[in-house]
C-alpha cells in the first residue's frame, strides 16, 4: 500500500512555513504601528530636525515599509537580528543568554509536568467515577481557577519566608550542584507545573475516556483484558493525537507566557526581556522576541500534528 505519510508531513511543514511568513509580516507591521518616531525617541526631545533626518536616512527609516521588511527578513536569515536601540548591543547577544534561561526553565517544567499530567490524566480515566478520579478532577479545576501570581506568591510566602527552605529569588548562577539546581528552580518549576498540568490532565482524561467508550474497548474487555491493559493497549494509542495537541498547546505557554513567574522570582528569561524592550521601545528586540515566541509555538503545534499523523494507522 502506498503510504501517504511523507507527503502529509511535508504538507504540514509547508503550512508551518507559510504561517511563519504571515506571522513575521504581522510582527513587523504591528511594531511599526507603535506610537512615536524611532529617531525622535533615540535622540530625545531636544534633537535638531537635521540630526533626526540624518538618523532616519542612516536607519533606512525614510524608505518604504515593505523594503524595510525585506531588509529585516534578509537580516534574520543571515542571523543578524539587528542592533538594540536602547543600548546599541546586537540583539542576538542580548537574547542569547536569556533564551537559554527560558529554555532551561521550560525544559525542566516539561520534564516534570508532562509525565505527571499524563499519569494523572490516564489513571483518572482508568478509575473513572471513583474517589481518586473525583479528587484529581476537583484538584485540577481548583488549580486552573487560581491565578498564577497567587500560586507563585504563596509559594514564596510558605517556602521562602516561613519555612526558609528555598531562596525567594532564583539565583541562576548557583546551579553547579544538583541541590543548587533544585533550590534555584524548585519554586518557578512548581508554579509553572501547576499552571500547565491542569489543562493537560483534563484533556488527557477526556480523550482516554472517549476511546474507552468505543466498541473495540468493550470487545477487549470481553476478551478478558484487565483495566490497565484496556487503557494502555487499546484506548491510549487511539487517544494519542488529541493528547499530543493538548500537550503542545500547554507547553507553548512556557515559551512566551511566563512573564509573571519570571517577574516574581526575578528570573532572567526572555519574556521579561521583551517586556523591558516594550517599555524602552526597543523595536528590533521586540520583533526578535515575538519571532522567537512564534517559532516556538509553531514548532510545538507542528510536532503535535506530525505525531497525530504518525499515530494514525490509516495513513501509514
Amino acid at each position: 500500500m502506498k503510504t501517504r505519510v511523507p507527503s502529509l508531513i511535508l504538507g504540514r511543514l509547508f503550512i508551518a512555513l507559510i504561517t511563519l511568513t504571515i506571522v513575521s509580516f504581522a510582527v513587523f507591521f504591528a511594531t511599526t504601528l507603535l506610537p512615536g518616531d524611532t529617531a525622535t525617541i533615540l535622540l530625545g526631545q531636544s534633537a535638531t530636525p537635521e540630526a533626526i533626518a540624518g538618523l532616519r536616512t542612516a536607519m533606512h527609516l525614510d524608505e518604504p515599509a515593505l523594503l524595510r521588511f525585506l531588509y529585516w527578513i534578509v537580516g534574520l536569515f543571515q542571523g543578524d537580528l539587528g542592533t538594540s536601540y536602547a543600548n546599541h548591543v546586537p540583539v542576538a547577544t542580548l537574547i542569547g543568554g536569556r533564551l537559554l534561561n527560558t529554555l532551561k526553565l521550560a525544559g525542566l517544567t516539561t520534564l516534570v509536568s508532562v509525565p505527571l499530567a499524563l499519569t494523572l490524566g490516564i489513571t483518572a480515566a482508568m478509575w473513572r467515577r471513583t474517589l481518586y478520579d473525583r479528587i484529581v478532577t476537583i484538584a485540577t479545576i481548583g488549580i486552573i481557577s487560581v491565578p498564577e501570581f497567587v500560586i507563585a506568591t504563596s509559594a514564596v510566602l510558605v517556602f521562602a519566608v516561613y519555612l526558609k527552605w528555598l531562596p525567594a529569588l532564583s539565583f541562576t548562577y548557583d546551579v553547579n550542584s544538583f541541590s543548587g539546581l533544585l533550590r534555584a528552580y524548585a519554586m518557578p518549576v512548581i508554579t509553572l507545573t501547576f499552571g500547565v498540568s491542569a489543562q493537560m490532565i483534563r484533556m488527557t482524561r477526556a480523550a482516554v475516556i472517549e476511546t474507552l467508550n468505543t466498541p473495540y474497548v468493550e470487545m477487549a474487555l470481553l476478551k478478558g483484558a484487565s483495566r490497565p491493559r484496556l487503557v494502555l493497549r487499546h484506548a491510549l494509542p487511539n487517544a494519542l493525537s488529541p493528547i499530543a495537541n493538548a500537550v503542545a498547546l500547554s507547553l507553548s505557554y512556557l515559551v512566551g507566557g511566563v512573564i509573571i513567574v519570571e517577574t516574581i522570582f526575578n528570573y532572567p528569561g526572555i519574556a521579561k526581556l521583551m517586556v523591558d524592550a516594550v517599555s524602552t521601545r526597543d523595536l528590533p528586540l521586540i520583533q526578535s522576541c515575538a519571532m522567537i515566541f512564534c517559532v516556538g509555538y509553531l514548532l510545538l503545534i507542528t510536532t503535535a500534528d506530525i505525531v497525530a499523523i504518525l499515530s494514525n494507522p490509516r495513513l501509514r
Partner: peptide
C-alpha cells in the same frame, strides 16, 4: 479469567470492534 477462554463473543459490527491502531 473466563472471558475469551470459556466463553467468547463475536460482536455485531466487527468493523467497530477491532482497534484501528493495532
Amino acid at each position: 479469567t473466563l472471558r475469551g477462554t470459556t466463553v467468547a463473543y463475536v460482536p455485531q459490527s466487527a468493523a467497530a470492534a477491532f482497534n484501528p491502531a493495532a
